[in-house]
């Protein structure tokens, strides 16, 4: 739960994505500032996940720009990666590393000090109520447990903006409450969250702003 590099604003300006003339994302604009919890809702095929990929610099838009404090967003840029932590689709974890191993690897490669690693990792595991799974391989987790483990990985690395694609999926009611609390804590600590959510009630309870896709519809 390390703080990342602070930012002023992330601006998506008229971005689109299309393949062979078929639109995957109609023109979309969005600005995110510190302390915001922006939930994106909308029907399937509205381009929500495509937008998240573009927003995090993992995909180039067909048109439009994404800038973070004036700098074009590209996932390969280290500065950008210290601000934006995406969880879009399943994390490509190692089949031969346990949950605890993954967290150590993530913590250390993001520059965590060696002595405090155990404390940070235990804290995030306990916060998400998955401490008991620390010695399991990813293949030994249920889909809901894996969802929480993946969330713990993005929470552990430094970031000032979490970008999540349907993190509530596969979670039971109690764990959705937990997710809601964790995201609120992030926003209270001046971080931001942009996430796609299909649970309208959860979205309304947690968000500071709701964006409905496709825009201009």
């Amino acid at each position: 739960m390390t703080a990342g590099t602070a930012f002023q604003e992330l601006v998506a300006d008229g971005v689109t994505a299309s393949v062979d003339g078929v639109s995957m994302l109609p023109e979309t604009s969005l600005t995110v500032r510190p302390g915001e919890n922006v939930v994106i809702t909308g029907p399937n095929g509205a381009g929500k996940t495509t937008f998240l990929r573009i927003l995090t610099g993992n995909m180039l838009p067909t048109a439009g720009t994404i800038t973070l404090d004036g700098t074009r967003v590209d996932e390969r840029d280290r500065t950008i990666r210290r601000v934006i932590a995406p969880l879009i689709g399943p994390i490509a974890g190692y089949r031969d590393l346990t949950v605890g191993d993954h967290l150590i690897l993530v913590d250390q490669t993001w520059g965590g000090d060696r002595d405090g690693a155990a404390e940070r990792i235990i804290a995030v595991l306990e916060r998400l109520d998955i401490y008991d799974f620390r010695d399991r391989y990813l293949s030994q987790l249920s889909s809901g447990q894996r969802q929480l483990v993946e969330l713990s990985i993005v929470l552990l690395r430094p970031s000032a903006l979490l970008v999540l694609d349907e993190p509530e999926q596969r979670l039971d009611t109690g764990r959705r409450e937990l997710l809601s609390d964790v995201l609120r804590e992030r926003v209270d600590a001046a971080s931001s969250v942009v996430w796609v959510c299909h649970d309208q009630e959860l979205a309304e309870r947690t968000a500071t702003r709701i964006e409905r896709f496709p825009q201009h519809s």
Partner: peptide, 19 residues
């Protein structure tokens, strides 16, 4: 047994060896 916290480079190599 978990991999050891050995900094950026050491932990990455250590993870390979553990695997």
């Amino acid at each position: 047994l978990r991999i050891k916290a050995l900094g950026r480079w050491g932990t990455t190599v250590g993870a390979d060896i553990a695997g």
